[in-house]
């Protein structure tokens, strides 16, 4: 029981970590608090679901389709919606309030579009739903694949951000947007790329979550909330922190659902959040560039 719960928790946590990474990039690099993040993740869920049920395209191929689309959508939203706000704020504290409000409106638009097209029912599909024996317990194959993929994507992104020149520039924008200009970094362009990269991660997270969990058009707020909590627990802009915090949140939630009550998972999430706020508001691992 404990071992299988541990596996379930790690799988869930892996996808939370991936979702949180995307949000962290959008907030850390592009300085945009995207409250419609969960809605974009759900769009990917529905896209993968439609491709699988109507055309028979497996979710793994679907992943390859929705990730570039997520990047493009993020790019487009930044160019169309966020740029006017960036220009208007002139780099002041006004930007945060404006982006929160604009994405709050966007949340209702995207949610409304999904409700009109897919209805409000819970949706799921069965893909690779057979058990695989692992250390004496069985884990569903789809969960295992989702876990491995989220770790691969997460650590791959970490490697890119730490090793490549592009990643270094992105981190420079996150750490010191005012000084990044001085070394010849186009802060606006990289901000947009960071936002688009966040959109790609939302799509990846959505595609992976849809493989093993039911979802509905109104779930976005809860996913955004969980991603936000992971970001704060890990420290804004801290990628390894987000990975670890995501795994912790997944474990906490699964253990509460298994041993206390499934109806209290959000309460568990909030308790963790409160504990972090009261004890270490800058995140468990502090605010770091890595």
């Amino acid at each position: 029981m404990i071992l299988s719960t541990l596996f379930l928790g790690l799988v869930l946590g892996g996808t939370y970590a991936l979702l949180a990474l995307g949000l962290s990039l959008q907030y850390g690099i592009a300085r945009i608090m995207n409250l419609a993040y969960g809605e974009f993740m759900l769009l990917a869920c529905f896209a993968v679901f439609m491709m699988f049920t109507s055309w028979g395209i497996g979710p793994l191929w679907g992943l390859l389709v929705v990730v570039p689309l997520g990047y493009a959508l993020g790019w487009g939203i930044h160019a169309l919606m966020m740029r006017p706000l960036l220009k208007r704020s002139g780099g002041g504290g006004r930007l945060e309030v404006d982006t929160i409000l604009a994405t709050f409106g966007l949340l209702f638009v995207v949610q409304g579009l999904m409700l009109v097209s897919f209805g409000s029912d819970f949706t799921s599909y069965s893909y690779l739903d057979r058990g695989i024996a692992l250390l004496g317990t069985t884990v569903a194959a789809n969960r295992l694949i989702a876990f491995v993929l989220s770790l691969v994507i997460g650590f791959g992104l970490y490697a890119v951000l730490v090793r490549s020149r592009w990643g270094r520039a992105l981190r420079a924008v996150a750490l010191a947007p005012d000084s990044a200009y001085l070394v010849g970094i186009d802060v606006n362009r990289l901000g947009r790329q960071g936002f688009a990269l966040g959109g790609a991660l939302a799509a990846a997270g959505g595609a992976l979550v849809s493989m093993f969990q039911t979802f509905s058009a109104t779930d976005g707020v809860v996913f955004t909330m969980k991603a936000l909590i992971v970001v704060i627990m890990g420290g804004v802009g801290n990628i390894l922190g987000a990975l670890i915090a995501g795994l912790l949140l997944g474990l906490a939630e699964t253990f509460v659902a298994a041993f206390i009550d499934p109806g209290l998972t959000l309460a568990a999430t909030y308790t963790l959040f409160l504990a972090v706020l009261l004890w270490r508001p800058t995140g468990l691992f502090g605010r770091a560039g890595g």
């Binding site: 704060i232 009550d261 959000l266 909030y270």
Partner: peptide
């Protein structure tokens, strides 16, 4: 728990608060 910190924490906390209270009462 939130107003001593930067405004963004308050916004995030308030964002999910209704859902939390709803789930707690339902439970």
């Amino acid at each position: 728990s939130t107003l001593r910190l930067a405004g963004i924490y308050f916004v995030i906390f308030s964002f999910g608060l209704a859902e939390l209270v709803r789930q707690l009462i339902t439970w």
